[in-house]
Deep mutational scan, measured.
Amino acid sequence: SASLEDVKTAVLGLLVILQTKLYTLPASHATRVYEMLVSHIQLHYKHSYTLPIASSIRLQAFDFLLLLRADSLHRLGLPNKDGVVRFSPYCVCDYMEPERGSEKKTSGPLSPPTGPPGPAPAGPAVRLGSVPYSLLFRVLLQCLKQESDWKVLKLVLGRLPESLRYKVLIFTSPCSVDQLCSALCSMLSGPKTLERLRGAPEGF
């Protein structure tokens, strides 16, 4: 439990870093931090981490990651405290083949985003970082199938509809809506759902 406290501190630090690096160059920093966060949550489900502190780590990670939004130009952003989304000039939600690297070039400044813009690109060529939603999407499927803490599952179920409104997140990387529907149906009809959940409301 003591070591998990250190892990929790590290994860919180990564969330803060991602919130900053999403809007700064090099964009590969945001890509790497995002991948680290998603990989860490995957390990929770792989090794069945069920301690309360592990659940709190997942809760905080999902609470942040499910706020990711994308505009029509595929640029990622996060809402501010007033709910207004600021889109990044440097990070996009497109999935890119590994051989192309985590970044790609664009020939010049991008068109203005639909929300308040981030800082304008400084040079004639900007390297865009790929932060594909499919990585998070796979972890969300694991959550629906394996999550043991009701608070975490409730958060994910509550945030998913709003995330799905931003269709560009889903359609720019390999996210299977069929698998999502299947996971939701299995969660509702499967007898093991109630068996594994802690803290579920009576009558769920």
Rank of each mutant, 00 (worst) to 15 (best):
L136Y: 06
P109Y: 12
A10W: 00
L169E: 03
T106H: 11
V131D: 03
P161I: 09
A30D: 01
V168S: 10
D6K: 00
S148L: 07
R127W: 07
S55P: 05
F204C: 11
K81L: 11
P161G: 10
G101F: 11
F137G: 03
S189V: 10
T20A: 10
S3F: 06
V85L: 10
K46V: 13
Y45K: 01
Q142D: 12
C143G: 03
L135A: 11
L160Y: 01
T193Y: 11
Y166Q: 10
V84A: 10
S182V: 08
E147N: 01
H40A: 02
V139F: 01
S148I: 11
L68W: 05
P201M: 07
K46M: 09
P132M: 04
E162Q: 09
L22E: 01
L68T: 05
R86D: 07
V33M: 04
R75W: 03
L25N: 10
S72N: 08
K104Q: 14
K192S: 14
T20N: 10
Y45G: 00
L73D: 08
K154T: 05
G115A: 13
K145S: 13
K167I: 02
P174Y: 06
I170H: 08
Q42E: 14
P174R: 07
L135Q: 13
K167C: 05
P174I: 03
P89H: 12
L110H: 13
G115C: 12
H74Q: 04
P52D: 09
P191S: 12
K21T: 04
P201E: 11
V33H: 00
A54H: 04
A200S: 11
E147L: 00
H44W: 00
C91F: 15
L164H: 01
L169K: 04
Q142W: 07
L110I: 12
C91N: 06
G118H: 14
V156T: 02
S88V: 02
C143S: 05
E103V: 10
H74W: 03
S3G: 14
L135H: 13
K145V: 11
S102R: 13
D82P: 04
L37F: 02
F204Q: 04
R196M: 06
L76A: 12
S102E: 14
D149I: 02
Y133A: 04
I17P: 01
Q42G: 09
E202R: 09
F171A: 12
K8F: 06
R196L: 06
A125D: 13
E99N: 11
